[in-house]
């Protein structure tokens, strides 16, 4: 891998990996993409920690726990441009449906009262390996500054491709109506 290419990093926080699937949906254009960039920290190449400064960070999912917050903070620190990719990163999405339910009720349903739960002691899991949940699910831009939002559930591969290539080739991002129309 040459080192003078700009780097791209990606992460899936409280999402379903659907947005990452959509990244892969650019199909054989991924070969053009790796001519343009190197992938740094990302599930795509399984690099766990940043190896250096990145030009672009793509974030799928909002923040539902402290681990999400730490990863997002880390991305903000290492990336020049940070993009909320898809509904969950932008608005919280499906996970944020819990925001109207007090956390205790969520825990009780998950660990005590749910129909398939067997938990005679009634304790909530407290292993330090399990990140603590936040009081609610936050969209990324409420936690750190986000530079762009690419909407969609997931954003179509063509939309991701158009945005990424424009950013990486220093051209204005032009998203025609068909690429940002969802109904």
């Amino acid at each position: 891998m040459s080192t003078d290419k700009p780097k791209v990093a990606t992460a899936s926080l409280a999402g379903c990996f659907g947005c990452h699937m959509s990244i892969l949906d650019i199909d054989d254009r991924i070969l053009q993409l790796i001519d343009l960039v190197d992938f740094d920290k990302s599930p795509v190449d399984d690099i766990k920690e940043f190896t250096g400064r990145c030009a672009v960070g793509l974030i799928e999912g909002g923040c539902c726990n402290e681990e999400n917050v730490r990863v997002l903070q880390d991305f903000r620190k290492h990336c020049d441009v940070l993009i909320s990719l898809g509904e969950c990163a932008i608005c919280g999405g499906i996970p944020a449906m819990r925001n109207n339910v007090p956390l205790k009720e969520c825990f009780d349903e998950a660990y005590r009262n749910g129909p398939s739960v067997h938990n005679p002691s009634g304790e909530y899991p407290s292993d330090p390996e399990i990140p603590l949940l936040l009081n609610k699910v936050y969209p990324c831009h409420e936690v750190v500054k986000m530079d762009y939002h690419l909407q969609g559930c997931p954003p179509p591969a063509d939309t991701i491709w158009a945005a990424l290539t424009a950013l990486l080739t220093d051209k204005p991002v032009e998203l025609p109506y068909e690429l940002i129309k969802y109904d």
Partner: peptide, 15 residues
């Protein structure tokens, strides 16, 4: 790098 309105300790309070 946190937004001014975000307080991690407050967000973790319930948990």
């Amino acid at each position: 790098g946190f937004k001014a309105a975000f307080d991690i300790q407050e967000a973790l309070g319930d948990s």
